[in-house]
Design a protein around this nucleic acid. Structure first.
Length: 312
DNA sequence: TACGTACCTAAACG
DNA sequence: ACGTTTAGGTACG
């Protein structure tokens, strides 16, 4: 099934948005500007058509009508799904203008990094992905997530270029007793225990627990996430921002720490490490400077600081 | 409360 | 070369 979605490059820059380490399963095809990835149980090719101001999409797997409890899938549904996933119901260029007026550093960076959008991901995939992200790099995180899918997720299809593709595993599939040891063997390191214990704890809660955090306030959602093993302040903020609709969440990682001490809050250079207090100070600064959607502005600055996008 | 340190791994670094 | 550092941190003392 094919279709097209209206989105100018200034509203959605596919490579910057998909490869900036928000989500870890999108890959560019070798011989075309086509992005390959999975959303739920659907496998996609996405291509940005600059002239036509659209994203051309293809769903690569056949979708059984009874398989998912969801409605029959037609191209309208897919457009809705992509609009939701890419958070397309707000105008990014308007926000860029606003943020550029708020902050001259943003104004200087923005022209080179237009169309960097925060995705609205599926909470479970987002949560386990960012447990893997601690003290790690994007390349290795991507390998780990792919390995998690290959070993515990439902088979979807075989792709000519990327081979067997699996969905992200559901919680039940991550609840087997040997999971920690298995993940150790697969190279997850100390995150193996976090993932195994997290799966068990989430499984013991109500089935809708994670989804319902979307309807709670930022502080409550964040506190509930931090109670899980392997989730600290930074990872909790990633999950809040990227899948729980908390656009005011500011994940402070090494990049944002660098940017903050270099440009905005130089007095923090005296700190030996990122304390809870400094963490909050940086988040509060971004929120006061950029407003309620500070997390989306932060994402643009983060992206501009990634090594892979330097000099671009 | 505020640091220091251990924790897995692999590629980049000097 | 080859040991050290770094890469989107967290838990524990």
């Amino acid at each position: 099934m094919r279709g097209s979605l209206c989105a100018a490059v200034t509203e959605l820059n596919l490579p910057l948005t998909l490869a900036s380490g928000q989500a870890f399963r999108w890959r560019k095809r070798a011989h075309a500007d086509v992005w390959f990835g999975v959303i739920g149980k659907l496998v996609f090719n996405l291509e940005q058509c600059v002239d036509k101001q659209t994203i051309e999409w293809t769903v690569l797997n056949h979708v059984s009508r009874d398989g998912n409890k969801c409605k029959k899938l037609d191209s309208t549904n897919i457009n809705e799904l992509l609009t939701d996933y890419f958070n397309l119901n707000y105008s990014l260029s308007d926000l860029y203008e606003h943020w550029s007026r708020c902050d001259e550093n943003f104004a200087a960076i923005a022209p080179k990094f237009t169309g960097v959008r925060v995705l609205r991901q599926q909470p479970e995939e987002n949560l386990f992905s960012f447990i893997c992200s601690s003290n790690n790099n994007i390349q290795r995180i991507s390998k780990m997530i792919e390995s998690l899918c290959q070993n515990y997720g439902e088979f979807l299809l075989t792709d000519d270029e990327f081979g067997d593709i699996h969905a992200f595993p559901d919680i039940k599939s991550l609840c087997n007793e040997n999971l920690e040891q298995e993940l150790r063997k697969l190279g997850f390191g100390y995150r193996s225990k976090y993932i195994a214990n997290c799966a068990k704890m989430i499984a013991s809660k109500s089935e809708q627990w994670l989804q319902e955090l979307r309807h709670k306030c930022y502080e409550d959602a964040r506190n509930e996430l931090i109670a899980l093993p392997g989730i600290g302040p930074k990872v909790a903020d990633c999950i809040c921002l990227m899948s729980l609709d908390k656009s005011e969440a500011i994940p402070v990682d090494t990049h944002i720490w660098q940017i903050a001490t270099k440009i905005y809050l130089p007095h923090l250079k005296r700190n030996k490490s990122l304390t809870d207090k400094a963490y909050k100070e940086i988040g509060d600064f971004f929120r006061s400077r950029f407003g309620t959607n500070a997390g989306w502005a932060h994402n643009v600055l983060f992206c501009s600081d990634l090594r892979q996008f330097k000099n671009s």
